[in-house]
Deep mutational scan, measured.
Amino acid sequence: MGFKLLSKLLVYLTASIMAIASPLAFSVDSSGEYPTVSEIPVGEVRLYQIADGVWSHIATQSFDGAVYPSNGLIVRDGDELLLIDTAWGAKNTAALLAEIEKQIGLPVTRAVSTHFHDDRVGGVDVLRAAGVATYASPSTRRLAEVEGNEIPTHSLEGLSSSGDAVRFGPVELFYPGAAHSTDNLIVYVPSASVLYGGCAIYELSRTSAGNVADADLAEWPTSIERIQQHYPEAQFVIPGHGLPGGLDLLKHTTNVVKAHTNRSVVE
């Protein structure tokens, strides 16, 4: 069995187990497998329904001669939608809004960016022009300005110390501490036991640490421990890039980060 097929099978099995364990909360999309990078042309966006009122959005972007996937989250909030992270750029984010209108038909009224990198804030200006209120932590807003990236308009308070959590509509926002970046936030959907790890969490097929220019490698494993301790009931975990899975993604990420750190020390 090929690795790609095995990865998709694991996603399907995880979703099936969740649907059985929580039949009222989960209505997993039966329309197909989780979209992969090879299936999404740059400039297009796919939506994948995880649970009743919960979707991931998947886009792709060219970077350094390669094409990478990027995940975000959409959560229903009454007759409105909360968006977590842009679709990595203005063109993708405009396509995301169009796809949401086509498939869901509810307005996106608020959006949260989970850290300051372009795959999370690139497209904020498109959201703002569409009347979406954009939010991020003060740290993310400051770092985005320093980096020359787009800056969300509103500040999220109460997320300055490791372990801080605040309720934001249908989700809980959690600051686990520094990891992929010093400002990275985690998003949890309690009604569906869905954990969105953003770039602080890796997919299972990833074996290298990737972009760690703004990471705190020493603190990252401790931050992941905080996530595990705060959300032990999480059933569906979405990484910032690639295929979702279960809580095993947290341990896998820790292993990859520690291996990278150990290699760096040896070198």
Rank of each mutant, 00 (worst) to 15 (best):
M1V: 06
F3C: 06
K4H: 06
L6M: 12
K8E: 15
K8P: 05
L10M: 11
L10G: 13
V11F: 09
L13R: 12
T14D: 09
S16W: 15
I17W: 13
M18P: 07
A19V: 15
A19D: 15
P23C: 13
A25V: 12
V28S: 12
V28Y: 13
S30R: 12
S30D: 12
S31N: 10
G32V: 10
G32H: 14
G32K: 09
E33Q: 10
Y34W: 15
S38F: 11
G43M: 05
R46V: 10
Q49N: 10
I50A: 05
I50S: 04
I50E: 04
A51I: 07
G53I: 08
G53M: 08
H57V: 03
A59Q: 11
T60G: 11
D64H: 15
G65I: 06
S70R: 02
S70H: 03
S70M: 03
G72Q: 03
G72F: 05
I74C: 02
V75M: 03
V75C: 03
R76C: 06
D77N: 08
G78Q: 09
D79L: 09
L81P: 02
L82F: 07
L83R: 00
L83G: 01
I84S: 01
I84Q: 00
T86S: 01
L96D: 00
E101V: 09
K102M: 13
K102F: 03
Q103T: 13
Q103N: 14
I104M: 05
P107E: 12
V108H: 00
V108T: 06
T109Y: 09
R110C: 06
F116C: 04
H117P: 00
D118Q: 11
R120N: 02
R120G: 05
R120F: 01
V121D: 02
G122E: 08
G123F: 02
G123N: 06
A129E: 12
T134F: 02
Y135F: 11
Y135S: 03
S137Q: 08
P138W: 08
L143Q: 10
L143R: 11
E145L: 13
E145M: 14
E145K: 14
E145Q: 13
E147F: 15
E147L: 13
G148A: 08
N149K: 15
E150N: 06
P152N: 02
P152K: 02
T153I: 11
S155N: 13
G158Y: 07
G158I: 03
V166W: 06
R167K: 12
V171H: 03
E172S: 03
L173D: 00
P176C: 00
A178L: 06
S181G: 01
S181F: 00
T182H: 11
N184R: 01
N184L: 01
I186E: 01
V187A: 12
P190E: 12
P190L: 07
S191M: 11
S193A: 12
L195Q: 01
A200L: 11
I201N: 06
Y202L: 15
E203V: 05
L204V: 11
S205Q: 07
S208L: 11
S208H: 11
G210W: 03
G210N: 02
V212L: 05
V212T: 09
A213N: 13
A213G: 11
D214W: 04
L217Y: 01
E219Q: 10
I224N: 05
I224M: 05
E225L: 12
E225H: 09
R226W: 07
Q228G: 10
Q228V: 13
Q228L: 13
Q229V: 13
Y231F: 10
Y231K: 01
P232V: 07
P232Y: 07
A234G: 03
V237F: 05
I238L: 07
I238W: 03
P239W: 01
G240S: 05
G240I: 07
G240A: 06
H241R: 02
L243M: 14
G245N: 05
G245S: 06
G246W: 04
D248A: 12
D248S: 12
L250W: 02
H252I: 04
N255D: 13
N255I: 09
K258Q: 13
K258D: 11
A259G: 14
A259M: 11
H260G: 13
T261K: 12
N262V: 10
N262L: 11
V265L: 12
V266P: 13
E267A: 05
